[in-house]
Nucleic acid binder design. Structure first.
Length: 420
DNA sequence: TCTGGGGTCCTAGGACCC
DNA sequence: TCTGGGGTCCTAGGACCC
């Protein structure tokens, strides 16, 4: 554990807590036979690797075949996804004992602002030590914590602290800590941006900080260039956000290499639309824009979207619209005969309760019984179909049966949780 | 190395309106 | 009326995150 002297902490009150190799750690917790051995969660793809496996170079996102090449004794296990949710929730609950200002950013990760807790619970370092001990004692899981004055820096600190570590960056030593680190540790720098920065001779955050803002913006775009410049000087003080609402809901299904057929498209899209629609309704939301994505066998992908005059949240409507969008996309690529993935999304979300007040006004002129569920759905469906026909041609969409296929090749819970 | 699923944000061009 | 400028919305694609 590496830590700067606590007396210099000053105003570093943001914690970033991140459970280590979360899925893999849970599996090792559930099955003692997996402890201290290189193992990973996943089937065709590594979703999460234990630290013993990471030592061999195995990492998330890697194909199982590649992982076995690197680590011949690697044990692959399927996931216990409901356990991940339960233990992730439990870890967050422990953090909430220390401050109400908890911003959860994924199943296994959260920011905390403990500024208001110091006089009762001790310094941010004391709080972080206690959180780490409680998560270990009560749940049996390792969690790393970074402490700094800003969220971005706290997150970098937790990455540097891993595995099973704690790192405080004092407010008066931020740039001293930040600038020697590689640029790709920054939030928002992935493989493409890393390569572009390397072209400019930029490899560390310090080199990025010294680069002229204008050349960064030219190279990376105005928004990203400006943002990275601010992050490199640690001058991006975002506050903890306890409630952020989702702005889109989507579902996708990988299909290997599947020959295009009406049957495949209908069955897959209806299943995806059902998943999206049910999640929308669970949140009491509906959305104006329906998007469909088709990935071809060669991994190129195209998207088609349409914005409707009314927000939708009903399975058959989303299915009909998405299906027509898929057909439109395939129509534009007549050379394509195999697809490897289909996706359906709904965005432009609004609360459903607010929307239903508006609907009857439109329904009056449509000779549909206002206010009834069936009438509203039918009206929106007709409008949606009209909209799509206008944009993509009359033959692009028809009223197919809306019987849903409930068969599900992959357990849904497998789809909803993911970690890298 | 091309293999999973669910998200966010940004960009650029075009349509449309005033 | 073809001559200016600005704002907003929509669509498609891309990078990135966990």
């Amino acid at each position: 554990m590496f830590e700067y002297p606590a007396c210099m902490a000053d105003r570093a009150t943001i914690l970033h807590a991140d459970l280590d190799a979360f899925y893999a750690s849970v599996e090792q917790l559930l099955d003692p036979g997996l402890r201290n051995t290189p193992m990973a969660v996943g089937s065709g793809v590594v979703l999460a690797a234990s630290y013993e496996a990471k030592a061999f170079g195995v990492s998330g996102g890697m194909s199982t075949r590649r992982a076995k090449e690197l680590c011949p004794h690697l044990k692959m296990v399927g996931g216990h996804f409901s356990e991940y949710q339960r233990l992730g929730d439990a870890a967050i609950d422990i953090m909430k004992d220390f401050t109400p200002l908890v911003e959860r950013i994924s199943i296994d990760e959260a920011f905390l602002d403990v500024a208001g807790s110091i006089h009762l619970l001790g310094s941010p370092t004391d709080i972080a030590i206690t959180i780490r001990r409680r998560v270990k004692d009560e749940l049996g899981l390792p969690v790393s914590v970074g402490i700094a004055r800003t969220k971005h820096l706290a997150k970098i600190a937790s990455q540097v602290a891993k595995p099973d570590g704690l790192l405080l960056v004092p407010a008066d030593r931020e740039l001293e800590f930040l600038h020697p680190l590689p640029a790709e540790l920054m939030w928002g720098v992935g493989p493409v941006t890393k390569a572009r920065l390397a072209e400019m001779g930029i490899r560390t955050i310090g080199e990025l900080a010294e680069a002229p803002g204008r050349s960064l913006e030219r190279l990376l775009g105005a928004a990203i260039g400006t943002k990275l410049g601010a992050l490199a000087w640690n001058s991006d003080p975002r506050a903890i956000e306890q409630h952020h609402s989702v702005s889109s809901v989507s579902a996708q299904s990988a299909l290997g290499r599947s020959p295009v057929s009406d049957e495949l498209i209908e069955r897959t899209i209806r299943h995806l639309a059902d998943r999206v629609a049910s999640r929308l309704r669970a949140k009491s939301k509906a959305g104006h824009t329906v998007t469909a994505r088709v990935r071809f066998a060669d991994l190129r992908s195209v998207t088609r979207s349409v914005t409707l005059p009314a927000a939708v949240s009903v399975t058959p409507i989303i299915a009909e619209v998405a299906e027509s969008l898929v057909r439109s996309a395939l129509h534009d690529h007549p050379d394509v005969h195999e697809v490897s993935l289909l996706a359906v999304g709904v965005s432009g979300l609004a609360m459903e309760s607010a929307l239903q007040l508006e609907l009857p006004l439109h329904l009056e002129g449509e000779r549909i019984r206002p206010g009834t569920e069936a009438g509203s759905s039918r009206w929106v469906l007709d409008k949606a179909v009209d909209e799509v026909r206008e944009k993509f041609g009359k033959r692009s969409i028809g009223y197919a049966s809306v019987v849903l296929d409930e068969s599900r090749a992959v357990p849904d819970e497998f789809r909803e949780l993911a970690e890298h």
